[in-house]
Design a binder for these strands. Structure first.
Lengths: 198, 198
DNA sequence: CACGTTCCGATACGAGCGCATCGGTAGGCT
DNA sequence: AGCCTACCGATGCGCTCGTATCGGAACGTG
């Protein structure tokens, strides 16, 4: 067999290159040639990793979604009180916001894919799956918080979960448009989550 | 002078065609040729109305923004209690949501332009201008409501305005992704606005 | 009434796109 | 050690894009 390369690693690197291009110049900047250049591989390599451009974009979409989930996990682990439900809740939602440069890039990628999801049902299904995971996590956190008394018992979990997700998305849009700074958006989010505590 | 056509009317018709194409298949579907076909004019006519494609897209962006404002005005006029501040507030915010087919189309156009605004500062400025107008309107409504006792006096107007806009945007995203129906989004919005009443 | 000006719609062009194809090359098997 | 296979990176091909250009039709004017 000829020289072997790690296919999964290459796919991840390409997906990362796609995200960087979309985050900098939008979806239309993610041409196969530009992606190859950004990932420092040849055009042929990109074509062998992904049968078609659409397949590449879907993988990149799942890639950025995984990054958000991963960032939530990391923020929880690094937080001063990893065991506190309120902390976990806040850190999870913060991971969805554009609070730092990395998050800002992901937010731009997120809205690009979300806009595309509005007209391509297959992409919308991918996004809904991501949101389903986030919603489930929030439900678990809220329920655990109510059981150990950290979350007010009168909070209606399902509707509160939806409201928190809606708030995070709305704030992300506001930050991207420059109507909120990352700091002010974070403050709004924290005011909301602290309102849930006992 | 040769045969004269109404330039402004033609520009509006072209902008409408751009919105229909973007609402159906996304920003990339708005090529000059497709726009010309949708507007039932020649490619040359589109080029003479707009010096460049970007100029056309900016005009279309302002066009859909004007439609939202116009819809808010129409909803207020048609509402059962045009004089009630609470009604005006609710109808204004409803105009920002994708509550009917026309609104759904506009919402898809909105998110397409918003995504582009995240990477093109010039477009972001246009969007910010639109939001500034909406925010000013909401501030006026809330203040008037407080003065005549229809809105709770403890509502902090500036932050509430931002919160309402953020909520409307977040709900729009959720509807576009299929995580909210137009009806459920409207219900969330109404619950929020009725909470502001005395 | 014919001319000339002015604007319209069709065509032409270079560039860049996604995708398909094809020698070259680097290792595993006997 | 040498062959042979499997994969890599470069090149080619239609196609469509945005933009520039050009002949022709339509009206005010002398």
């Amino acid at each position: 067999m000829p020289r072997q390369v790690d296919h999964d690693d290459r796919r991840r690197r390409i997906a990362q290159a796609v995200c960087e291009l979309i985050g900098r110049d939008g979806l239309e900047a993610a041409t196969l040639r530009e992606v190859a250049a950004q990932a420092e591989v040849s055009l042929g390599a990109v074509q062998r990793c992904f049968r078609t451009k659409e397949e590449m974009l879907v993988f990149a979409q799942e890639h950025v979604n995984r990054r958000v989930t991963e960032r939530a996990r990391a923020r929880i682990a690094e937080s001063p009180e990893p065991g506190s439900v309120a902390t976990m809740l806040e850190q999870t939602l913060t991971a969805m916001l554009a609070v730092d440069d990395e998050g800002l890039l992901d937010a731009r990628v997120w809205i690009a894919f979300t806009a595309q999801s509005a007209v391509v049902p297959a992409l919308a299904a991918v996004q809904r799956g991501h949101y389903a995971g986030l919603a489930e996590l929030l439900v678990v956190l809220l329920r655990a918080g109510q059981e150990n008394g950290q979350i007010r018992p009168d909070v209606e979990i399902e509707s509160e979960t939806d409201a928190l997700i809606t708030l995070a998305d709305g704030l992300t849009v506001q930050v991207l448009l420059g109507r909120h700074t990352p700091e002010s958006a974070l403050a709004v989010l924290q005011r909301r989550t602290t309102g849930l505590r006992t």
